[in-house]
Amino acid sequence: MKKLIVLCVEDEAEVRDAVIRDLAPFKSTVRIEAAESVDDANTVLEDAKATDQDIALILCDHLMPGTHGVDFLIKLQGEPEYKLTRKVLITGQAGLEDTVRAVNEAELHHYIAKPWKADTLQEVVRTQLTEYVLKTQDDLTPYVATLDGARLLEAIASRGRDA
């Protein structure tokens, strides 16, 4: 199975470590990539494209050296291949103005305020990844164990009926 990619963009190593660690429960179904800046994140996107892997979810900090998170998400929204990618901001410092821009122009799916709780983060990631696989994957069974099993099973059943 081709693994979906979850990309975490965060400039502070300690915070990045913590997010990655909190994503551990999803490791069996998705590949977690870390990037310390938007430039670095772009490299990950190119690598993924080269190896034909899909970016399912981007968890992005806002205030970082170089390009800010919101601007990165807005840019991605303009590129068709990332239209379906789920976009989540994890930040303690995005002001109202930036957040509004992210919602309106990047169709931001979720906003997680720092400091976060592992449960919350995992719940958001689970929901977002479930949305993504429902929209993009033909075979949902590999995701039942780690993502929202109930919804996926329901979808599998209804697809079976429709077929």
């Binding site: 190593a13 990045r16 990539e33 870390a34 990037a35 310390e36 670095d40």
Partner: peptide, 9 residues
């Protein structure tokens, strides 16, 4: 010592 994410990849 912290390594860059690119280096780790």
């Amino acid at each position: 010592t912290p390594r860059s994410t690119a280096e780790q990849r």
